[in-house]
Nucleic acid binder design. Structure first.
Length: 614
DNA sequence: TCTACACCTG
DNA sequence: CAGGTGTAGA
């Protein structure tokens, strides 16, 4: 692909040319190139941590050497004078590969927040109020839709397989993007070494830090280049610390040459890379939104729910943000009163038009959502998200995953949530057996031994952290979602008994936390001498709300519906009344409360139906 | 017998 | 949050 002499191009045009060629030709590339055989060593350590990124590459060069970190660094810029230049290039190439990989596998810290205080409170509450056990069953929903859903699941295999196909396509696309970047890096290094040779006669005395390294806070946008620079800097520092040797001179000189003569090239490369990224990501997202559209329509045939609007509105939501903002600005309402979602029971289709009339203390758009996709994202962020979770966060073809994926952070490669605790176990090994167990056949295989496969094969296609987040937000509307609701609002989930149970379990856990908070606050109020139920109110700045919001909306990027405050207040008052009238002596005293609360569920807004909204 | 639930535990 | 358990309803 790069046969033509690059020397005839200017810095900018070289990159442009390469990008054009690579992008245009990327579809023709052999996919197997992504899993370079030379990357086996580095891939095994990739993405474990950012610190390992550096050593992992060098370990490639020093397979036979000791594994001490010190040696890792020293071997990368090994002082062996006779070392061929290609080795050096290879090392750099490996480093670039590693950087790119680590982009794809950077650990997701988003969910690492703590709810320890809440948990300790929870424990505390449990210790204090353990006297009443069980016997507090709640009338369940009068629908046994699970049985009815089973055939639907079987019938969904076609849509599921097409989904997988889309997934795979997107994955391939991303992989080829990575490949392109890698090739660009290679080319860059070649050009850069030519440049180096040209300027070799120039000597440098200064060893001051390069200006771009002053930026020690890598924005996500420039993170890629930043890491390269950091790597270079690390290498350089290490060299100078090690004392004089030819390599050191060479490295310093080429680095500084790179600083001067290659400055333009670097800037150009930065620009072009981000541009290419941008374009590719755009393309991916275009495809993604159309996929989401297809999915909605697929799902519609399975779930007899009114999703008419969803598949026409959702895909354009991210782009239509400004429009919504404008429309809100044009019709500023100051309605402070809560809109009761239950009492008035507006049709679902009205919700979107009703919602904007509620006064928002912060920027909010048409939908009550304010997820990341709704806010302007850097390309790299979007790409990162895609790489983390995939278009539908399913890596249905997990058996095809390279072995290097095994050791990445479970969060980072889009492994379904429930796999996280299992991924280190031997379970995963089974999936890599070339058994030919496609994701489609898994379902049928699962049925006889549901329990065994729950955390296993099934969840490979199962729920992801994004689904969890979505479920939590849905809790603001419904505390007792029926399985039909769940199916409707998780259209991208391939439902089976395990998945359904897991979702139900999630909501059960949500309720548990919710009720524990209520009981705790009610008892505390009583201890504090509160006599009147009317003093038990919940507003957005009350401690109770903060606790709940922290639990279900940790990122605080979602506008909690007013109705949830009302329901919470009612719940709190129910607990207050029950406790203050000593009803809690009855072992099943909570049962009555549950009965009340389960009737206060609201309809979940249509926006939640979109499989692409998260 | 199956399912959803609350409760308990890690 | 998930696993386990007992319960109640279908």
């Amino acid at each position: 692909m790069y046969d033509e002499p690059l020397i005839s191009y200017s810095n900018r045009s070289i990159i442009s040319h390469l990008l054009r060629k690579t992008i245009h030709n990327k579809k023709a590339l052999d996919e197997s190139h992504f899993y370079l055989p030379t990357s086996t060593v580095s891939s095994s350590t990739m993405a474990d941590s950012s610190q390992e990124d550096q050593s992992s590459v060098s370990s490639k060069d020093s397979v036979a050497e000791s594994a001490s970190p010190g040696r890792h660094l020293s071997t990368r810029v090994s002082p062996e004078e006779d070392r061929p230049l290609s080795d050096h290039l290879q090392a750099k190439r490996a480093r670039v590969e590693n950087i790119i990989r680590s982009m794809a596998g950077s650990p997701n810290s988003r969910l690492h927040g703590d709810s320890e205080r809440a948990e300790s409170d929870t424990r505390e509450a449990r210790e204090a109020y353990r006297e009443n056990k069980r016997k507090q069953m709640l009338p369940q929903h009068q629908e046994h839709s699970l049985n009815a859903a089973a055939p639907a699941n079987r019938g969904s295999s076609s849509s599921s397989s097409s989904k997988d196909e889309e997934c795979h396509k997107l994955k391939v696309q991303l992989q080829s993007m990575q490949r392109i970047l890698r090739q660009l890096q290679d080319k860059f290094l070649q050009v850069y070494n030519q440049d180096d040779a040209v300027h070799e006669d120039r000597d440098d005395t200064g060893t001051a830090s390069p200006p771009e390294n002053d930026d020690t806070t890598p924005s996500k946008e420039s993170g890629f280049m930043f890491r390269i620079n950091m790597d270079e800097e690390l290498e350089r520092k290490h060299d100078s610390g090690k004392g004089g040797c030819k390599d050191r001179v060479k490295t310093d000189r080429s680095y500084l040459t790179h600083q001067r003569g290659g400055k333009n090239l670097q800037e150009t490369l930065k620009h072009e890379l981000s541009k290419a990224m941008s374009e590719s990501v755009d393309r991916v997202f275009k495809k993604l939104s159309s996929t989401g559209l297809n999915q909605s329509s697929h799902q519609k045939s399975q779930v007899p729910c009114n999703q008419e609007q969803s598949h026409t509105e959702e895909p354009v939501k991210p782009q239509a943000l400004e429009h919504y903002e404008r429309s809100e600005a044009c019709s500023p309402k100051d309605q402070t009163e809560a809109l009761s979602l239950v009492v008035r029971k507006p049709p679902l289709s009205q919700l979107s038009s009703v919602t904007p009339t509620v006064k928002r203390p912060y920027p909010l758009h048409q939908s009550p959502f304010q997820f990341n996709y709704s806010t302007p994202l850097h390309d790299s962020q979007m790409l990162e998200h895609l790489l983390k979770y995939g278009p539908h966060t399913n890596f249905g073809g997990l058996p095809c995953m390279p072995p290097s994926m095994d050791r990445t952070s479970p969060n980072s490669v889009g492994l379904p949530w429930s796999m996280r605790s299992k991924v280190t176990s031997s379970h995963l090994a089974h999936h890599h057996h070339p058994s030919g167990l496609g994701p489609v056949t898994v379902d049928s295989l699962c049925l006889p031994h549901v329990k065994m496969e729950c955390g296993d094969l099934q969840s490979i296609q199962g729920l992801t952290p994004n689904h969890l987040k979505k479920a939590k937000l849905m809790f603001f509307y419904t505390r007792y979602p029926s399985s039909n609701v769940l199916k409707t609002f998780f259209p991208d989930v391939k439902f089976n008994r395990c998945i359904t149970s897991q979702l139900i379990k999630w909501f059960s856990n949500f309720r548990e936390f919710y009720y524990i908070q209520m009981e705790k606050f009610a008892r505390q109020a009583i201890v504090d001498g509160v006599r009147d139920v009317k003093d038990m109110s919940i507003s957005r700045d009350s401690e109770m709300f903060r606790a709940l919001n922290m639990h279900y909306n940790k990122a605080n990027d979602f506008q909690v519906p007013e109705r949830f405050l009302e329901v919470s207040e009612i719940t709190l008052q129910e607990f207050f009344n029950a406790i203050s009238t000593a009803k809690d002596s009855d072992p099943s005293w909570k049962k009555a409360i549950y009965k009340v609360i389960c009737k206060l569920d609201s309809d979940v807004p249509d926006e939640f139906k979109s499989s692409t909204c998260l």
